[in-house]
């Protein structure tokens, strides 16, 4: 069937080894190696799923004894009494810890959301290119500071500062933790928020500016509505990060199981409790198991927050 190509005048006919359109066969080893590699790539691809399930499975596995043994759901969620090591009166109520987590997170968001979104709008819409580059690099570096360093800053810088400014006896409290968490979660808000604003087509801006609107009017009337899903996702990811933060809140919030009545009260969060007590709880004891159950609780909260953020972003992609 295959007629050999007729040689063209002036060009050398291709030698047989180079000439077959099918090419010389690649060596069997090369073909085999490639298919093995592609399987490895596939395996790595699905590894993320395995790890997420693995985390859930192994954390639950360590805590499951408590789930079917000592767990009293009512006490667990609605009691503020956390006496896991008491000899006479063991209590595993995590309400105070949950309230602690959300009070610190909430206050942090109260500070971080306006600043984060404001910075995102500034970087994306009001800034010259040179300033933008510089600011983004600084914000990136801000994100790189390890949480234990933040915790140290909380103890060594914020603590005396809060005592001084607000005339309170102790500076390790909700406010301290919230300030740290705000600084920690702003970078992620700025970068995701900026992406969301950048995703709004330039034609929207041009159309608005052409009608004589100022930049700010454009931002408020056109960009914010158009980018609202992305900005919401930015906030949610910031919340997720704040809820899961461990070292900074462990060091800076005063470490007292307590329902806070003011920002100057010390609290303890879910994450800090695990970090502080896991080292002392003996493996397999109810105390040890309940810490893993708290881990599952944290996993579930952050999973839900991330899932919602993802769905919200996917909503933007469609709209």
């Amino acid at each position: 069937m295959n007629l050999p190509p007729a040689p063209v005048a002036g060009t050398r006919p291709l030698s047989v080894s180079t000439g077959s359109p099918r090419g010389p066969r690649r060596s069997r080893a090369a073909v085999l190696g490639e298919s093995v590699l592609e399987w490895v790539i596939r395996l790595c691809g699905i590894s993320a799923i395995l790890f997420v399930f693995g985390i859930f499975f192994f954390v639950l596995r360590e805590g499951v004894g408590f789930l079917f043994g000592g767990l009293k759901l009512g006490e667990f969620f609605f009691s503020t009494e956390w006496y896991p090591t008491s000899l006479s009166n063991v209590r595993y109520g995590v309400l105070a810890l949950i309230v602690g987590t959300f009070s610190v997170t909430g206050l942090a968001m109260l500070i971080a959301v306006p600043f984060g979104l404001g910075a995102a709008i500034f970087v994306s819409e009001f800034c010259s290119d040179r300033w933008r580059e510089g600011l983004k690099i600084l914000i990136e570096l801000l994100a790189a500071i390890p949480s234990v360093v933040w915790g140290f800053i909380g103890i060594s810088v914020m603590n005396p500062l809060i005592q001084e400014v607000f005339h309170v006896p102790v500076g390790l409290n909700v406010l301290n933790g919230a300030l740290l968490l705000a600084l920690m979660s702003v970078p992620i808000m700025v970068s995701i928020g900026e992406d969301a604003l950048k995703a709004v087509p330039d034609s929207f801006r041009e159309a608005s500016l052409a009608m004589g609107a100022t930049r700010w009017q454009t931002v408020r009337r056109v960009l914010l509505p158009a980018a609202k899903n992305g900005l919401l996702a930015a906030i949610l990811l910031g919340v997720g990060r704040a809820v899961g933060e461990t070292m900074a809140v462990l060091m800076a919030t005063g470490h007292a199981v307590n329902i806070p009545k003011s920002p100057f009260d010390p609290v303890r969060t879910l994450t800090a409790t695990i970090a502080a007590e896991l080292g002392e709880a003996s493996v397999g004891s109810p105390h040890y198991q309940v810490l893993f159950i708290i881990g599952i609780l944290l996993f579930t909260i952050t999973f839900a927050v991330n899932l919602v953020a993802d769905l919200v972003v996917k909503g933007t992609a469609k709209g």
Binding site: V8, T11, R12, L14, S15, S17, T18, G23, P24, R25, R26, S27, A30
Partner: peptide, 23 residues
């Protein structure tokens, strides 16, 4: 493309490249 097809000989490759570029 010749390399992807498993072609290694340097001289033949050079000749082929020249021929294709001429064509």
């Amino acid at each position: 493309a010749p390399r992807a097809a498993g072609f290694k000989d340097k001289h033949e490759l050079a000749a082929l490249v020249e021929q294709c570029l001429r064509q």
